[in-house]
């Protein structure tokens, strides 16, 4: 299975991130911990892709926007944080996309209008869900969605196993 190597890599990255986080700040609330876990998991799953996909790059860029997470990202992914230039590029492409969309087709058939509107609204929702999907066209959006779903499955699987393992450990500690 190709997923096993992916899972191992994700786990390695994630635990690295968690260790870093725990070494930085000791006493934290439950929300901070949750945020840290999620962030490290996201960065770990994104770093498994080696920034070959757009969603992973967008995820890392979103995480690096805080500024405080930069060291975490650099440690986990072992790579420089991408600059803002890439984001600007994406925005530019988005603008072009929008213009071209408006320039096209004036008189659409009346029957297909509703279906087109539905598909458009769904596509917009999917663009919002997939990280960095706002600036994508339809083909790349679908490609990225496939990749994102695969990696999300890996993430969920590993995290679930981690959670169950931790579940077993907590009562053991408290006792």
């Amino acid at each position: 299975m190709q997923n096993t190597s992916l899972k191992q890599e994700f786990l390695k990255n994630w635990i690295k991130g968690l260790q870093l986080h725990s070494s930085f700040n000791k006493n934290t609330t439950i929300f901070e911990r949750r945020k840290a876990i999620k962030l490290s998991a996201d960065i770990a799953i994104a770093s498994t892709r080696n920034s070959t996909t757009r969603w992973s790059r967008a995820l890392i860029a979103d995480a690096s926007r805080d500024g405080s997470n930069k060291t975490l990202i650099e440690k986990i992914s072992g790579r420089e944080v991408p600059h803002k230039a890439s984001l600007g590029l994406i925005r530019c492409s988005k603008r072009i996309l929008k213009r071209s969309r408006f320039a096209r087709r004036r008189a659409a058939p009346v029957a297909g209008l509703i279906a087109k509107k539905l598909v458009k609204s769904r596509t917009r929702a999917l663009k919002r869900l997939v990280p960095g999907g706002e600036g994508m066209d339809e083909i790349s959006l679908i490609k990225e969605t496939i990749d994102y779903i695969v990696s999300l499955r890996v993430q969920v699987d590993v995290m679930g196993r981690m959670a169950t393992a931790a579940d077993r450990l907590i009562p053991f500690k408290t006792i």
């Binding site: 968690l18 725990s22 911990r33 949750r34 840290a36 993430q155 969920v156 995290m159 679930g160 959670a163």
Partner: peptide, 16 residues
Amino acid sequence: QVEFLSMKLAVSNPHL
């Protein structure tokens, strides 16, 4: 699910 699991982990590991 990812969110939930991170929450669960945050809960189960009080000190990380």
